[in-house]
Simulated scan of single mutants.
Amino acid sequence: MCAEQLAPGRGLEALAALFDLQDTEAPRFTIEKVERALGEVAETLGPGGKLRTCVDGEDAAATLAAQQRYLLSWVKARGGRVSVPQAFVVPIVDEALHLDDAMPATSAGKLLKLVEAPGSK
């Protein structure tokens, strides 16, 4: 989300780079590793630690907390038995997450269909 805010149109590219960090040695998501993984995208985010400021900011913390609450309720509704990892398509309207309209994506193909669906938000 921070990458998209700082470099509109580059968020999905940044997300792909973050997924690749899951296959690295722990700790997987240090700010230094994230910046290196973002590579070319990081250059468009600007100097002066803007990425770190965004990631550590109150807005990012509130968004993450809301997403964690949503996932917890989703897992509880399924009796606590779900496979991992989980992916969801969450509509964003006027820069606000609409978690009530989130849809789980059980495969990359389904995820693309949800994102590219006619009339998708």
Score class of each variant (00 low, 15 high):
residue 1 M to T: 05
residue 103 M to S: 13
residue 3 A to W: 02
residue 12 L to R: 14
residue 24 T to E: 13
residue 37 A to H: 06
residue 115 V to S: 07
residue 96 A to E: 15
residue 37 A to F: 05
residue 96 A to S: 10
residue 75 V to W: 02
residue 33 K to H: 15
residue 83 S to C: 03
residue 46 G to H: 07
residue 19 F to L: 13
residue 50 K to F: 08
residue 94 D to R: 09
residue 98 H to P: 03
residue 81 R to N: 02
residue 83 S to A: 09
residue 62 A to M: 06
residue 47 P to N: 08
residue 24 T to M: 13
residue 10 R to T: 09
residue 12 L to V: 06
residue 79 G to Q: 01
residue 46 G to W: 05
residue 5 Q to G: 09
residue 41 V to K: 00
residue 42 A to W: 02
residue 11 G to M: 01
residue 24 T to V: 15
residue 7 A to F: 03
residue 41 V to I: 02
residue 43 E to I: 07
residue 40 E to K: 03
residue 32 E to H: 12
residue 44 T to E: 15
residue 72 L to I: 06
residue 102 A to M: 10
residue 24 T to C: 12
residue 100 D to F: 09
residue 90 V to R: 04
residue 77 A to H: 02
residue 32 E to R: 11
residue 76 K to H: 00
residue 36 R to Q: 15
residue 101 D to T: 10
residue 43 E to Y: 01
residue 27 P to F: 12
residue 114 L to A: 09
residue 70 Y to M: 07
residue 120 S to R: 14
residue 24 T to F: 14
residue 75 V to S: 04
residue 81 R to I: 06
residue 53 T to L: 15
residue 9 G to Y: 06
residue 94 D to T: 07
residue 88 F to Y: 00
residue 58 E to W: 00
residue 101 D to W: 12
residue 3 A to G: 05
residue 96 A to C: 01
residue 61 A to G: 01
residue 57 G to N: 03
residue 39 G to M: 07
residue 120 S to H: 10
residue 107 S to W: 14
residue 92 I to Y: 01
residue 66 A to L: 03
residue 47 P to H: 05
residue 108 A to Q: 11
residue 16 A to N: 08
residue 111 L to R: 15
residue 73 S to H: 06
residue 71 L to M: 04
residue 102 A to H: 00
residue 37 A to D: 06
residue 77 A to F: 06
residue 33 K to C: 12
residue 109 G to I: 09
residue 68 Q to G: 08
residue 15 L to A: 15
residue 57 G to H: 02
residue 83 S to V: 01
residue 108 A to M: 05
residue 110 K to S: 10
residue 40 E to N: 01
residue 7 A to W: 00
residue 24 T to A: 15
residue 111 L to I: 02
residue 50 K to H: 11
residue 38 L to N: 03
residue 19 F to T: 11
residue 39 G to D: 00
residue 34 V to Q: 13
residue 91 P to S: 00
residue 100 D to R: 10
residue 72 L to V: 09
residue 112 L to Y: 10
residue 97 L to K: 05
residue 99 L to A: 04
residue 95 E to S: 07
residue 39 G to Q: 09
residue 91 P to W: 00
residue 32 E to Q: 13
residue 33 K to G: 10
residue 50 K to V: 09
residue 85 P to R: 05
residue 112 L to H: 10
residue 121 K to D: 05
residue 57 G to A: 05
residue 91 P to K: 02
residue 9 G to H: 07
residue 95 E to F: 07
residue 100 D to N: 06
residue 76 K to P: 06
residue 11 G to F: 08
residue 121 K to C: 07
residue 106 T to F: 11
residue 107 S to R: 12
residue 10 R to M: 06
residue 91 P to Q: 04
residue 28 R to H: 14
residue 47 P to Q: 10
residue 112 L to W: 09
residue 39 G to T: 00
residue 60 A to G: 07
residue 35 E to M: 12
residue 99 L to K: 10
residue 7 A to R: 04
residue 22 Q to P: 14
residue 42 A to E: 10
residue 30 T to H: 11
